[in-house]
Amino acid sequence: MNQALKVAMADRGETIDSLAEQVGVDPKTVGRWITPGRVPHPRHRAAAASALGREVADIWPDVLKRREPAWLRPWVETELQATALRSFQVTVIPGLLQTPEYASAVLSSGLLGPDEVADYVETRMRRQKAVLERRKPPLFVAVIDEFALRRGDPEIMRAQLDHLVELAQRPNVLLHVLPLDAGFHAGQAGPFVIATTDDSDVAYLDDQAAGRLTNETAALWSIWDTLRSVALPRRQTIDFLEARSWLT
Rank of each mutant, 00 (worst) to 15 (best):
A4E: 13
L5H: 06
L5V: 07
V7W: 06
M9I: 02
G13V: 02
G13D: 10
S18N: 08
A20L: 11
Q22E: 10
V23A: 05
V25L: 05
G31K: 11
I34N: 10
T35I: 06
T35K: 15
P36I: 06
G37D: 07
G37T: 10
G37R: 11
G37V: 10
R38A: 07
V39P: 08
H41F: 02
H41S: 05
P42C: 06
H44C: 09
A46R: 14
A46Q: 15
A49E: 13
S50D: 15
G53S: 13
A57E: 06
A57H: 07
D58T: 12
D58N: 04
D62P: 00
V63F: 04
L64M: 12
L64N: 09
K65C: 01
P69W: 11
P69S: 13
A70M: 12
A70R: 14
W71N: 07
L72S: 12
R73A: 08
P74S: 07
W75Y: 13
V76F: 04
V76I: 14
E77D: 14
T78A: 10
L80N: 03
A84Q: 14
L85D: 11
R86D: 13
Q89E: 15
I93K: 00
L97T: 02
L97F: 09
T99Y: 12
P100E: 11
E101C: 08
E101F: 12
E101W: 09
A103V: 08
V106D: 00
L107K: 08
L107M: 13
L111A: 08
L111T: 12
L111P: 00
G113Y: 09
D115K: 11
D119A: 15
D119N: 11
D119L: 12
Y120M: 15
V121D: 09
E122V: 01
R124N: 05
R126G: 00
R127Y: 06
Q128A: 02
K129R: 08
V131G: 03
E133N: 11
K136W: 13
P137E: 12
L139H: 15
V141P: 00
V141W: 15
V141E: 15
V143M: 09
I144E: 07
E146Y: 01
A148V: 08
R151D: 06
G152L: 03
I156G: 03
R158M: 07
A159P: 03
Q160P: 01
Q160I: 06
L161K: 02
L161W: 00
V165L: 01
E166L: 10
Q169N: 14
V177E: 02
P179N: 05
D181W: 07
F184R: 09
A186T: 07
G187Y: 12
Q188I: 15
G190D: 05
F192H: 07
A195W: 05
T197A: 02
D198W: 11
D198P: 04
S200L: 07
S200T: 12
V202S: 00
Y204L: 08
L205D: 05
Q208L: 14
A209Q: 11
G211P: 01
R212W: 03
R212M: 14
R212G: 09
R212C: 10
T214G: 02
A219K: 14
L220Q: 04
L220A: 08
S222C: 05
V230F: 05
A231G: 01
R235A: 14
R235D: 15
T237A: 01
I238W: 03
D239P: 00
F240R: 04
F240Y: 02
A243P: 00
W246C: 02
W246V: 03
W246M: 04
